[in-house]
């Protein structure tokens, strides 16, 4: 079964972009460096508190681009990704906003939280 499946998968291998997916590559890493560096700083509780106390000042300290600043201001995860954010780092920022990965998923897919969770549950049904 496994070899046949593998061959079928290979023969059917689609090329080109993956829908709804941004590969975090060198371009994205370069573009998003300031934003991801800020998010990395949130491993430290004192930094999370400093961000909460003065969001503008904290973002300025990390030299976010205007586009990154606006994405953070609007809590818009897709805009953060478009600005070079990496989801593992953005997850630390989302935590400050009280957003779980399901909240983040719902926001990006334009679904309600319940609908997003239901979609995940349905993925497991045969």
């Amino acid at each position: 079964m496994t070899i046949a499946f593998a061959q079928r998968e290979r023969l059917g291998e689609a090329q080109g972009p993956i829908p709804g997916t941004t590969l975090f590559d060198g371009d994205a890493a370069a573009k998003g460096y300031a934003l991801n560096a800020m998010c990395y700083s949130f491993n430290d509780k004192a930094n999370r508190e400093a961000f909460r106390a003065d969001e503008d000042g904290y973002c300025a300290r990390f030299h976010l681009t205007p586009t990154q600043r606006e994405a953070v201001r609007s809590r818009n995860v897709l805009a953060m990704i478009a600005a070079g954010g990496n989801i593992y780092y953005l997850a630390k920022l989302a935590g400050i906003f009280g957003l779980s990965v399901q909240d983040v998923g719902a926001q990006q897919t334009g679904m309600s939280l319940d609908a997003f969770k239901q979609m995940l549950l349905d993925s497991g049904k045969d």
Binding site: I3, A6, T22, A91, G105, Q108, T109, G124
Partner: peptide, 26 residues
């Protein structure tokens, strides 16, 4: 699993089973 992008929430049980079935001996 996929956390980011419009495809967030993507899960593929067929591929997962292929991986688990292949792991031991293929």
């Amino acid at each position: 699993h996929q956390l980011d992008g419009e495809r967030a929430g993507f899960i593929n049980p067929d591929y997962d089973r292929f991986c688990m079935d292949s792991l031991a001996n293929d």
